[in-house]
C-alpha cells in the first residue's frame, strides 16, 4: 500500500518553500509559533545568560591575569605560590551544581509537556520515506504538506518505511525521529497562522536536504475548508490515478491487478477484451459492461466464478466509476 501511495504522490523538488518562520524572533531564535516554544525559549535564554556570565567571567579573569601577572624578565618567578584552597574549591563546585540542577529541572519539565498530548488532539499520521513526507489526515486524505488548525493540539504519529528520518519544525521547537519498525509520537499546538518550514534532520541519503515541506497553520475555520477541498481526489490527480486508489480501497479484497484470479477474476487486461459468461455467451468488456458489473454485478456472471460481488450502487459516484474504467483501461494497455 505504501508503495502505491508513493507512486501516486511522486516527490518533486520544491522551489516554493517558505523560510523557517515568518519575520521576527530574537537574535538567537526564530519566532516561536507553538505553545511549546514559550517554555523552550525561556529555558534557552536562562541557560544562555548563565553561560554568558560564566564565559565573560572566565575570559575576563584570564585576560586580566595574563596581563597583570605577565613575566617581565625571562625566568621571573611567580609572586605567590598558593597551591590549594578547599573552601574555594567547594564553592566553585557547589555554585555550578545548583545552576545545573535548575537547568535540568526546567528542561525536563518542558520535555514532559511535549510527551503528553491533551485529550482530543487532532491525529495526523506521518510516513517518512526517502525523500518525502506523507501526512494522513483523519478522513484518509494523504498530503505532502502538513496542514493544521491554529490553537488546536495536533498529535503526530511517525513511522518510516525505509531508514531513520527526523521531523523537525524549527518554529514549533519540536523534533522527533521517524524510526522504521516503531511508532514515535509528538504533539504541538500552533499559535500563529502562517507558513513554516518542516525539515528532515536525520541523515537519510542523497536527497536528505531536499526532504523539506511546508507546514500551513490555518486561521480558525479554514482548516476544515482546506481538508474538504484537498480530499477531493480529482483536483490533483488524473482519472486513472483516482481509479487506482479506488480499486485499491474497494476491490482488491476479491480482485487482483496482476493477472491472477482470486475470488473474482483479475482486473488486469479485461478492458475491451472478450469475456465468457456462465451461460456460455461471450461479451466484450467495454465501458458499459464494467459499469454494469459494478452497479449490477448479478446481471452477468463470469464463467468459473461465484456470485460474491455485491452492488456498488450508491457507494461509488458516476465520476468514480469513470475513473475506475480509466484505470482498467490503463491496466490493459500495460499488458499489451
Amino acid at each position: 500500500m505504501n508503495q502505491l501511495i508513493a507512486s501516486l504522490l511522486l516527490a518533486q523538488t520544491r522551489t516554493d518553500l517558505p523560510p523557517v518562520a515568518p519575520e521576527g524572533g530574537t537574535f538567537w531564535l526564530p519566532p516561536g509559533a507553538s505553545t511549546a516554544a514559550g517554555h523552550t525559549d525561556a529555558v534557552f535564554y536562562f541557560i544562555y545568560w548563565v553561560s554568558v556570565f560564566f564565559f565573560l567571567l572566565i575570559v575576563a579573569l584570564m585576560v586580566y591575569f595574563a596581563w597583570r601577572y605577565r613575566a617581565r624578565t625571562p625566568g621571573q618567578a611567580a609572586s605567590g605560590q598558593v597551591t590549594h584552597h578547599t573552601v574555594l574549591e567547594l564553592t566553585w563546585s557547589a555554585i555550578p551544581l545548583v545552576l545545573v540542577v535548575a537547568m535540568f529541572y526546567l528542561g525536563f519539565r518542558g520535555y514532559m509537556d511535549m510527551q503528553n498530548p491533551p485529550r482530543g488532539a487532532l491525529d495526523v499520521r506521518v510516513l517518512a520515506k526517502k525523500w518525502d513526507w506523507f501526512f494522513t489526515y483523519p478522513n484518509g486524505h494523504i498530503d505532502n504538506e502538513l496542514h493544521v488548525p491554529v490553537d488546536a493540539p495536533v498529535r503526530l504519529t511517525l513511522e518510516s518505511n525505509d531508514v531513520i528520518h527526523s521531523l523537525f519544525i524549527p518554529a514549533f521547537r519540536i523534533k522527533r525521529d521517524a524510526v522504521p519498525g516503531r511508532y514515535n509520537k509528538i504533539w504541538f499546538q500552533a499559535r500563529q497562522p502562517g507558513d513554516y518550514l518542516l525539515m528532515c534532520s536525520e541523515f537519510c541519503g542523497t536527497r536528505h536536504s531536499d526532504m523539506q515541506t511546508r507546514v500551513v497553520v490555518h486561521p480558525p475555520g479554514e482548516y476544515e475548508k482546506w481538508l474538504t477541498e484537498a480530499s477531493d481526489p480529482f483536483r490533483t490527480r488524473t482519472l486513472a490515478e483516482v481509479g487506482a486508489m479506488l480499486v485499491a480501497r474497494r476491490c482488491l479484497q476479491c480482485h487482483t491487478v496482476d493477472g491472477r484470479a482470486n475470488i473474482g477474476p483479475s482486473l488486469k487486461g479485461i478492458y475491451e477484451h472478450e469475456v465468457e459468461l456462465v451461460d456460455g455467451t461471450k461479451v466484450i468488456a467495454d465501458d458499459d459492461y464494467i459499469r454494469e458489473s459494478v452497479l449490477y454485478p448479478q446481471a452477468k456472471i463470469v464463467r468459473g466464478f461465484g456470485r460474491e460481488m455485491s452492488s456498488f450502487k450508491g457507494i461509488l459516484k458516476d465520476k468514480e466509476i469513470t475513473a475506475i474504467i480509466e484505470y482498467l483501461k490503463e491496466l490493459s494497455n500495460d499488458s499489451r
Binding site: V43, S51, V100, M103, G107, P170, S201
Partner: peptide
C-alpha cells in the same frame, strides 16, 4: 548545557 536540557535539546538536536 543547552544540549543537556531536554526541552532545548529537542530543538537543537
Amino acid at each position: 548545557l543547552f544540549l543537556g536540557a531536554l526541552a532545548v535539546d529537542v530543538h537543537l538536536h
